[in-house]
Computed example of a mutant assay.
Amino acid sequence: MQTENEIVSITFFEYPKRNRWWAFNQMQLAIAPLKKARGVKFFKLMGTGGGSGFSLKPDLKTYALLMVWENQDFAKNFTTSDAYLRFNQQCKSNFTYWMQCIQSHGTWHSQQPFSPMDKKATGPVMVITRARLKWSKVLRFLTQVPAGSRAAAGAEGLIYTKGIGEWPAIEQATFSYWKNQQFMENFAYQSAHRDIVRKVKKEHWYQEELFARFVPVSLDQSQAASPRS
């Protein structure tokens, strides 16, 4: 279980066309500076998909930076660091969701990145799902992507969702933000998404997977993170 202080952030950076090659190169070049960020326990810089949830079409203008911080002071200070400022200077816009993990199972590259706190979601809830597919199941997975994307696009209570990942098709994740836990569970257990999950389990598509839930927080403790539509 985590201390009350651990903070998770995910920032979506949108780049103008002239800076997209720079942004793509940061997938490797930014690793060393990000490792030096004070108080960071885990991070992933990822590309994004162009549809709802998992997507076959990349969004070449948008990149996601997921970070886990020891406490909110380190999280706050990151926005004044050289690593962050370099992203901020090159992008057209960015938005950060600040969260605390309340549930997590599975691993990400054999690590358990999130330490859940003993807290229930009484309002909005965020979810990160991540999977590394077996090579033999990639084509099977890709045939299911359109149905899953359509279900996500029409999901009641969904505020925002974005497909994220380190490698197209092989290492995929999704970030989603819901009005409350009931809407999220309705989508997970009473839709086309449920049928896809059943196929995943029955046919053993994944080498590794992770599921985590979060609640939004504000770093000044005054209000929850603002919804993004």
Rank of each mutant, 00 (worst) to 15 (best):
Q181G: 07
K76R: 14
R130A: 08
N5R: 07
A155K: 06
R140K: 14
T122W: 04
Y84P: 00
F43L: 02
G163H: 04
L85I: 11
A151G: 02
Q144D: 13
C91I: 07
L139P: 06
R194W: 11
W205Q: 06
A151R: 04
E166Q: 05
D73N: 14
N77D: 13
R38H: 15
E209G: 07
F183G: 01
S81P: 07
L158M: 02
F13R: 03
Q207G: 04
R140A: 09
R194E: 12
G49E: 04
A173V: 01
S191K: 06
G157K: 05
A147Y: 09
Q2P: 11
V200I: 13
N5C: 03
L142M: 13
N77T: 04
F54R: 05
Q112A: 12
A121C: 07
K35A: 09
E70M: 07
W135H: 11
P113H: 10
I159L: 12
G49P: 02
F95G: 08
Q103M: 05
T96R: 09
M117P: 03
H109N: 15
G123S: 14
S115W: 10
I164W: 05
L139K: 12
N19Q: 15
K36H: 06
G154P: 05
Y15F: 15
V40W: 09
K137H: 14
S229M: 10
T79S: 14
G106F: 00
S104K: 06
A23L: 01
Y97V: 00
K202P: 09
K134G: 02
F183N: 09
K137R: 15
I159K: 06
T143V: 12
S115N: 14
W135D: 12
T3E: 14
F87M: 07
P168N: 06
A155D: 00
K201C: 07
W205V: 01
H109T: 13
Q190A: 10
F175M: 13
R150M: 12
Q103Y: 10
K137G: 10
D118Q: 12
D220F: 04
R20V: 05
T107S: 10
W108D: 02
G123N: 13
S149P: 08
V138D: 01
G106D: 03
H193T: 06
M184Q: 05
W69R: 01
V68Q: 05
D73Q: 14
L210G: 02
W135R: 11
F141D: 07
D195T: 08
D82N: 09
I159F: 07
H105P: 08
K120W: 00
S115Y: 10
G123Q: 14
G47F: 01
K36S: 09
F42K: 01
F214Q: 02
I31V: 12
G157C: 02
N71D: 15
P58N: 01
E14Y: 08
H204V: 10
Q28W: 13
N77S: 11
L34P: 03
A153E: 13
G106Q: 04
P33R: 00
V40N: 10
W21S: 14
V127F: 07
V200M: 05
G123D: 15
V8N: 04
K57I: 11
T143C: 09
I102E: 01
N186T: 12
P33E: 03
A32P: 04
M184Y: 03
T129H: 02
I128D: 04
E156R: 15
A32V: 05
E156D: 15
N186R: 12
G154T: 10
F175W: 09
W108M: 04
K44V: 06
R20K: 11
K201D: 08
A121Y: 02
P113S: 11
S136V: 11
Q181H: 11
